[in-house]
Amino acid sequence: MGTSVLSLRIDGELLDRLRRRAAKRGMSVQDYVVRTLVRDDFDERFQAAVERTEEFYGEEGDPGVAGPRETAGEPPGDQVRPSAGIR
């Protein structure tokens, strides 16, 4: 995987805030921004995966959708939903 250059024009006040936040973490502004973008991208992909999982198992309280356990003849019982504690 190669690297590319991204040039941004940002407000001086925003740059100052980014510098302070990066300094608190012992990072350069560039590293801080890249890390923030990567984290945001991960959060979006993770949320999409959670939504796909919920579609597969059916929304909680949706009696018309049977998850894999119900179709296998097992009672639903108490189970932890994939999105527990995410929202």
Rank of each mutant, 00 (worst) to 15 (best):
R19G: 11
R19S: 11
Y57C: 04
E59H: 03
Y32R: 05
A23Y: 09
Y57E: 12
V50R: 02
S28M: 09
E59T: 04
A22I: 10
I10H: 01
D43P: 04
V34E: 13
E54V: 00
P63D: 13
R39W: 07
T36Y: 06
E74A: 05
K24P: 03
D31I: 00
A23M: 11
L8A: 08
V34F: 06
E59K: 01
G67Q: 00
A72G: 05
F42E: 14
A66E: 13
S28E: 11
D16K: 08
E44I: 08
V38Q: 14
E44T: 07
L18K: 01
R17V: 11
E51W: 01
G12S: 10
R45G: 00
D11C: 08
E13Y: 07
V29T: 05
A49I: 02
Q30R: 12
D40L: 14
T36G: 15
D41V: 10
A49T: 10
L37E: 09
A22R: 04
R39K: 12
V33Q: 07
D31F: 02
T36N: 07
E55F: 00
G26L: 10
G61L: 05
V34K: 09
R21T: 02
V34P: 00
G73K: 03
D11P: 03
V65F: 05
E55P: 01
R9L: 04
E59W: 01
V38I: 14
G61S: 08
G73Q: 07
Y32M: 02
R39G: 12
E44D: 11
R21A: 14
Q47W: 04
A23H: 14
E54K: 00
A22Y: 10
R19N: 09
G26P: 13
E55K: 02
E55S: 04
A49W: 03
E51T: 04
A23I: 07
E55G: 01
G61R: 08
K24M: 12
E59L: 00
R52H: 05
D40T: 09
R9E: 04
T36S: 14
E13N: 10
L37G: 15
D41M: 10
F42A: 05
A23P: 04
G61H: 06
E54C: 03
V50A: 03
R20A: 15
L14C: 07
R17E: 15
E13C: 03
D43Y: 15
R9C: 00
V33I: 15
F46D: 11
A72D: 06
G61F: 08
D40P: 01
R21E: 09
L14I: 07
R21P: 03
D11F: 02
Y57N: 03
L18W: 06
L14K: 06
V34T: 13
Y57M: 10
R69D: 15
A49C: 08
E60C: 04
V50E: 00
L37R: 09
E59F: 00
R52M: 05
R69M: 14
T36C: 14
E70H: 06
V29L: 02
S28I: 00
E44H: 10
R19Q: 11
A72K: 01
P63F: 14
L18V: 03
R21N: 11
P63N: 11
R69H: 14
Q30Y: 05
P68V: 03
R25F: 07
